[in-house]
Amino acid sequence: MSKLILCLLVAAFAWGQDARQIVEEVQRRSRSGSEHYEGSLEVVNARGKITAKRWLYDRIGSHGNSKAVLRFTAPPEVKGVALLIVNHPDRASDQWMWTPALERDRRIALQDRRTRFFGTDFSFEDLEERDVGQYDYSLLGEEMAGGAACWKIESRPKQSKSSQYDRSILWVRKDRYVFWRIENYLKDRLVRRATYGDLQEVQSIWTARTVEMADLRENSRTILKLEKLEYNVPMKDEGFTLQALRRESR
């Protein structure tokens, strides 16, 4: 009896701890020194119209303390536009944008992080690296999802963290420690749903090569595909500065 009680106590303790540990483990397993891919993005609006974009993505540094450069390559109207993103572990990222037609950079103010990321269904907040420490987690249970066993975890932003969402439900594949789905709620209404697909192991890191974000209020969705993905590519820190952004985008 006492063993049973002990087991139940341990299980209850573990149940509360597991949720955070699971998310931390997801983050740990996806960690890499750098990353490079060619991204393609399709926005399908409520009327079925598709808008496509392509870009090159380079990241240096580890999770929460990284720098990234995103250079648009298509369509022609946006070719040459580049973004420099500097992520911080304790605050929102800093972002600058280079527009070749104006030959100038501009700081992108992300005070209102609800803003859609350049017409896609991702908000700027959705694209930020989630800092595990700024959320409370609770394990809701386990269920089969996307053909695999998943943990179902609820995350709520801590008081100190401002977020457009009240809570999110995360599905984490038990076999690979990667997200299968994230559902974001606002006032108990599901507003955005991200689904991760085409799971592949790239240089020992299990990565979803496709992310589909659906905006359920706008009835539109955005499909992001990661092509030619490489991790731990040699990169120099100088390549992630405003000067480099200006220089290389000319």
Partner: peptide
């Protein structure tokens, strides 16, 4: 006419002065 308005994509709007 949201489907035609490229302004829905602020990137194009910003990229083209």
């Amino acid at each position: 006419s949201g489907d035609q308005a490229i302004i829905d994509d602020p990137l194009v709007f910003l990229a083209q002065p």
